[in-house]
């Protein structure tokens, strides 16, 4: 936020307040125990504490789903809206209030199914916001239906003989959108990497899309159990411009040097591989930002009336 905006909104630069973790929310979340959403919430609070975000300047927007309960557990402004439509709401908020930090939390059904159209267009608008897609590969809240990211063959209540089609790959999809500016993948079971990734996303100027692989012990336990236990099933994308977590390489030994400026390689790496790749696939801060382009000076009522009278002259009889 610029100094000018700060003073415009009556919030002094001499703000002496400091915030610790509890200031960002101390409610006990109602997710199942072992649900990956808990870990994401903790990391998000840490990020806010580290960055000392003003709670009143921060808005979390979500859709509907287990994951979309997120804003309720934070002491910021929150908008828990309707299924699949978090991105348009966030767009409206950021366009009219550039001074706010906007975060979006969606589920895989929310983002990749019912809200898929908005996902594509929000990526292209490249409005400055941090977007967390909590991908448990299932519809959690409505109890175990196939989502676009459910792996082929995995049985659910709606496709009991196993999911019919290959899963949609959200990373590849996002990387395919014109004007994409930040795409990363992380997992709830690697907290240090999760925090580092959402920090990179938050600091990125533009639309930063983070797919967070999220355990749902209730409905997709078998999909993630082995993965979460076995560091060797991961491959870390590392680069000075991506995320690097000191010490993590002692556990997660497999890594790949990837410059996030390289979109072709990012796309290639996002395709299926033996191992799950975590890290920043793509980052480019030079892409045009719709919220920048559409930023406008404000007017007073008196100024507007004066102009409007001139406009009315065009119609005068």
């Amino acid at each position: 936020m610029s100094d000018q905006l700060r003073s415009f909104f009556g919030c002094g630069l001499d703000d002496e307040r400091t915030f610790d973790l509890d200031d960002y929310g101390d409610v006990v979340p109602r997710w199942c125990s072992g649900c990956g959403d808990h870990g994401v919430l903790n990391s998000v609070k840490r990020l806010m504490r580290d960055e000392q975000l003003l709670p009143e300047r921060t808005v979390f927007v979500s859709g509907i789903g287990c994951s979309s309960r997120f804003p309720h557990y934070l002491n910021t402004y929150g908008f828990h809206g309707i299924h699949g439509r978090a991105l348009p709401v966030a767009t409206g908020i950021k366009l009219s209030r550039p001074d706010l930090h906007v975060f979006v939390v969606m589920g895989d059904g929310d983002c990749c199914s019912i809200g898929a159209g908005h996902w594509l267009h929000a990526t292209r608008y490249n409005i400055d916001m941090t977007v967390l897609m909590l991908d448990n590969a299932i519809y959690g809240l409505t109890k175990n239906q196939t989502s676009p990211t459910t792996p082929m063959g995995y049985a659910t209540n709606t496709q009991p003989k196993g999911s019919f089609l290959p899963a949609l790959n959200p990373i590849t999809t996002t990387l395919g959108v014109t004007n994409v500016s930040f795409v990363a993948q992380t997992a709830d079971w690697v907290p240090a990497h999760l925090l580092a990734t959402i920090r990179a996303a938050y600091r990125h100027s533009g639309f930063s899309f983070v797919r967070i692989l999220q355990r749902c012990p209730k409905f997709t336990a078998p999909l993630f159990a082995e993965q979460a236990r076995t560091p060797d099933l991961h491959e870390m994308l590392i680069h000075p411009n991506g995320v690097t977590v000191p010490g993590l390489d002692k556990i997660y030994k497999r890594s790949l040097e990837h410059d996030p400026a390289d979109i072709d390689r990012a796309r290639a790496l996002s395709e299926e591989s033996e191992r799950v790749r975590l890290g920043v696939f793509y980052r480019n801060e030079s892409q045009p930002r719709y919220d920048d382009i559409r930023h406008l000076p404000t007017h007073t009522a008196a100024q507007n009336i004066e102009r409007l009278n001139v406009e009315l002259d065009r119609y005068a009889v």
């Binding site: 808005v59 927007v61 908008f79 809206g81 439509r85 991105l87 348009p88 709401v89 966030a90 767009t91 409206g92 908020i93 950021k94 366009l95 009219s96 209030r97 706010l100 159209g117 908005h118 267009h121």
Partner: peptide, 13 residues
């Protein structure tokens, strides 16, 4: 749908 959502977001803010 998005138009309504964006308008609501702007109003909310």
């Amino acid at each position: 749908i998005a138009a309504a959502g964006v308008a609501i977001g702007a109003s909310y803010a």
